[in-house]
């Protein structure tokens, strides 16, 4: 969906592999009265549409429809694809700069030999993360959302088609760095993993509860810096569990390779479920 004018187009969003030129097929030519809606009338109408003149009448329709129904339906299609191909799909969410890409680099280094890893990188701009992942040795597609603050199921659907992940592989979706918006958008992932780094403060789960509430695993990253930034791991755990007592928690310093074994075992456990 276009984040600029509210039309149904996927303007601004670019999905490409490292080395590819920017695709910009869509231009902003459409007007709002020029939409070509293709609706199927496969149900009976109660009224006959024969009124003339300036006679108006109205009708109330009870919808009871989820606002994000379109996204949710497409997310279920993504999920169906992942399930059918026996793919473990992980949605990584966090603030910007919490270490998502470094964690992915370490993960690739450690298990790419045993499991095929495929990565979808989400950022507003740049190919920087895709280039890092490419260097680390995993197939990657970069989604640039332009002004968009989160990935949605449609972007992931397009990215997955381009990435074409193998049967039995792991697909990591690195969401746009943002601890608020991505929480609402189901991408069709198998599990959602929230990463918080100690420099962000131990009360992050209380400040941004929705993200922690919708996640399956919380990684507390950059633990090597904890003594310098007055971060209490116990408090962070307590707050995170208060918001979501089903949450599993792993402490990690991806940079120093601490806690990464636990993360790998967690991933392997998910592939067996």
């Amino acid at each position: 969906m276009c984040g600029t004018c509210g039309c149904g187009e996927t303007d601004q969003i670019s999905i490409r592999k490292p080395g590819e030129n920017q695709e910009h097929a869509h231009s902003h030519k459409h007007t709002h009265d020029g939409h070509n809606h293709d609706h199927h009338h496969d149900h009976d109408h109660a009224h006959s549409h024969q009124h003339t003149g300036d006679h108006h009448h109205g009708a109330e329709i009870q919808l009871e429809q989820d606002i994000l129904q379109k996204n949710n339906l497409l997310a279920e299609r993504n999920r169906g694809f992942f399930e059918a191909k026996n793919i473990l799909a992980i949605n990584l969410v966090s603030s910007p700069g919490s270490g998502k890409t470094t964690i992915l680099e370490k993960t690739i280094e450690k298990i790419n030999k045993h499991h095929n890893l495929f990565i979808i990188e989400g950022d507003q701009q740049t190919m920087n993360d895709a280039e890092r992942i490419d260097k680390a040795g995993a197939p990657v597609v970069q989604v640039n959302t332009g002004a968009g603050c989160h990935l949605d199921a449609s972007m992931v659907n397009r990215a997955v088609k381009k990435l074409n992940p193998d049967e039995g592989s792991m697909v990591f979706i690195e969401n746009v760095g943002n601890l608020v918006c991505p929480s609402m958008f189901d991408l069709g992932e198998t599990c959602r993993v929230v990463i918080m780094s100690v420099t962000e403060g131990d009360d992050k789960p209380l400040k941004y509860p929705t993200m922690f509430e919708t996640s399956d695993l919380c990684i507390i990253n950059k633990t090597d810096l904890a003594p310098y930034v007055n971060f209490s791991t116990d408090k962070a755990r307590e707050y995170a569990l208060k918001v979501n007592h089903h949450l599993e928690i792993i402490e990690m310093s991806a940079q120093n390779d601490e806690g990464t074994e636990q993360w790998i075992s967690w991933l392997e456990k998910q592939t067996r479920q």
């Binding site: 009224h47 009124h51 109205g58 009708a59 329709i61 009870q62 989820d66 208060k242």
Partner: peptide
């Protein structure tokens, strides 16, 4: 301290009123 939210996460279009020309 461990609770589950069972209501309050809804985001729904409940109903609309439309006009015909």
């Amino acid at each position: 301290p461990y609770t589950d939210i069972i209501q309050g996460k809804e985001m729904k279009i409940k109903s609309i009123k439309i006009a015909f020309k």
